[in-house]
Amino acid sequence: MNRIFWAADSTVQTNDYTTYPQTGIGQVFPLFIKPEYQVRNHAKNGRSTKSFMDEGRLKAIEERIGAGDFLFIQFGHNDEKKEDPTRYTEPFSTYMENLETFIRVAKDRSAYPVLITPLERRCFMDEKHLGIGAHSDYVAAMKQTAEKNNVPLVDLYSMSRMELKKAGEKNCRRWYMFFPEGEYKNHPEKSEDNTHLRYDGAVNFASLIARGLRELGGIYADMLLDDMNL
């Protein structure tokens, strides 16, 4: 059985009822792949490339990943937190260096690394227009890293911005933890969280990753269900 290991942050992590209705992309990605592929989701809330490694989470993947497996690497949200030295990385230096460490772990185990640019937040300036976005330098740095290391890249950042623009400020609220008081028994308080996802958002953005993998072709497209219209 081929395995997909995922190293990422809260936009990808697998949630349980204690954080419901929050849902991560990695949690729903099995909806898009053939049954002979299995997702091993190591994504964790609040982690950057730096803190993920410092906590031994990459080491845990290194001990398990093997030939023919995939390592999906998706960071940026927390690497940009300048106020937190335990997580912050400079986009065109330490962030790129850390990404290369993840890539080496995969390649040293004869696995296939895939870089995935960070998901965009709901950063609307008005009902229709998005702001510049907080991740732009990290997206550029990840693209440079992919090119330098000859590693495939799925540009979730650009695709998600297009989806947000198409939906508009109000319609895309259903994708994020943005809802009124009393909508959920387990989360009765109002939420205006523009980063974390609900189920519809996780499925929508996971489908964009699947689309990107299909465009890469070869072994990346082979993991996807055959009858999907992406």
Rank of each mutant, 00 (worst) to 15 (best):
N229E: 06
T18L: 13
G56E: 08
P118L: 14
N45P: 00
R214A: 05
E90P: 09
S93H: 15
L31Q: 14
A221R: 04
G46F: 02
V12L: 10
F179H: 05
K59M: 07
V139T: 04
V139W: 00
S51W: 09
D69L: 09
P91R: 06
R47V: 06
N229W: 03
V12D: 10
F32K: 02
Q144C: 08
H129N: 15
K143V: 07
M228W: 00
Q22C: 09
P113H: 08
D108Y: 13
K170E: 07
S191D: 06
A134L: 13
V39N: 06
H77L: 06
R211F: 05
R109D: 13
N45H: 08
F72D: 03
K170N: 08
Q27R: 01
T145I: 07
K81E: 15
K166G: 00
T19I: 10
Y95P: 15
E62S: 11
S136E: 11
A140Q: 11
T19G: 07
G46K: 02
Y95V: 15
E97D: 15
S48R: 13
A140M: 07
L99P: 10
I116D: 08
M1Y: 11
Y199R: 09
Q22D: 09
G218M: 00
F178Q: 07
K81T: 14
R214C: 00
T94G: 14
A140F: 06
F29L: 11
E215W: 03
G182E: 07
Y176S: 04
Y17F: 12
P113G: 12
L216D: 00
P30E: 08
V139D: 01
Y138F: 12
R40S: 13
V154E: 06
K107V: 14
E36G: 12
T89D: 15
N194Q: 08
I65Y: 05
L225C: 00
Y17C: 08
I209T: 01
T23R: 14
A202N: 02
A134D: 11
T195L: 07
R40L: 14
P180H: 01
Q13M: 15
D69W: 06
S48K: 12
M223K: 00
A106L: 11
K190N: 05
I209Q: 04
P180I: 04
